[in-house]
Design a protein around this nucleic acid. Structure first.
Length: 310
DNA sequence: CGACTTTGACCTGCGC
DNA sequence: GCGCAGGTCAAAGTCG
């Protein structure tokens, strides 16, 4: 179906398409010279500042170099993957972030409860139906979203937060299903989608919607974070930093392929796939498995600024 | 028993 | 209006 493949940028959702046919792909550049990266990241409450803006040097470039050097054996593959993945165009546009305030999602009245598009109304209380009618005509308000691609063998990556899977759907034109997760914090409405690239199964596309209004839960399994550590990582380039965590508080030691304020919108359905049944594909879900084959001892103490406490 | 995953069903949005 | 695809719900099942 090409209905949404050509969708470029939803003015309401701020959602850009990463469809293979779309050139309007807004990924964070992997170059630390791309100043717009910081603009976008700052929109999510993340501050990547050039070395010169920070006291002490340390800097942006140097850290980047160091990290690049540490992962020199894998970095080249990252770039190759970037070019071969669906992200052929890596234009960076700060303005592609949704207009919705990137404020806390914490609320006693989570938006998705009243504006949820899905669900079987037949099995819902009348009040829910009533609210749905009330909401009719209103566009669904989307939370700020942030997508990035990571090279990883595991689908669900450890990010310090606890997630509850609430759905899974087969993705059009992709052999891999898309999983939907919601933060287990009752007042946190952050969601994330996890799927694998149909073009490169080693690439995991993770999309976050909203921002956490709470701290990580025992991340990294009880670890604390110091301001120095946060400051350190906050100086990393998007690429380098992403090897630890992403702007919304996600830790990703895996190789980051690219980051974006958008995520795949739709894809071609596979031959023989129709309806909900076809959209569901068997997946090797890993219940409760969010562990990463990485050195958590090193990465574990890093938490994004503003999300640390404990 | 609580937390979490699985999965069928259903709703909404969008393009035609 | 129709059909498709994305997204979500919630009952049932699983696990520790």
């Amino acid at each position: 179906m090409d209905k949404k493949d050509n969708k470029v940028d939803d003015p309401l959702t701020g959602w850009s398409s990463l469809g293979a046919e779309s050139d309007n792909v807004y990924f964070f550049g992997t170059s630390n010279t791309d100043r717009d990266d910081t603009s976008i990241l700052s929109e999510f409450g993340w501050n990547f500042q050039p070395a010169g803006d920070r006291d002490g040097g340390g800097g942006f470039d140097r850290i980047d170099e160091d990290l690049a050097g540490n992962s020199s054996t894998t970095t080249p593959s990252i770039m190759e993957s970037t070019s071969t993945a669906s992200v052929s165009a890596t234009e960076l546009t700060a303005g592609k972030i949704t207009d919705e305030p990137a404020s806390s999602n914490c609320s006693d009245d989570p938006p998705e409860k009243s504006t949820a598009s899905g669900g079987s109304s037949a099995s819902r209380p009348p009040s829910d139906t009533a609210s749905k009618v009330k909401k009719k005509g209103q566009k669904r308000i989307r939370q700020p979203r942030f997508a990035f691609m990571t090279k990883s063998e595991v689908d669900h990556l450890e990010d310090g937060y606890r997630w509850r899977k609430y759905g899974q759907k087969a993705v059009k034109n992709s052999p891999f299903p898309r999983s939907y997760y919601r933060c287990t914090n009752t007042k946190c409405t952050v969601k994330k989608r996890v799927e694998r690239s149909s073009e490169d199964s080693s690439i995991v596309i993770t999309t976050y919607e909203g921002q956490h209004c709470h701290h990580t839960v025992g991340f990294p399994r009880g670890g604390l974070i110091s301001h120095d550590q946060a400051a350190f990582t906050s100086q990393l380039t998007p690429l380098a930093a992403s090897q630890f965590y992403h702007p919304l508080g996600v830790q990703y030691p895996q190789e980051l392929v690219s980051m974006s304020t958008a995520a795949p919108k739709s894809r071609q359905i596979l031959p023989g796939e129709t309806g909900d049944q076809a959209r569901r594909l068997p997946e090797t879900s890993q219940p409760g498995t969010t562990q990463l084959p990485t050195d958590e001892g090193l990465l574990g103490d890093i938490v994004p600024p503003g999300m640390r406490s404990r």
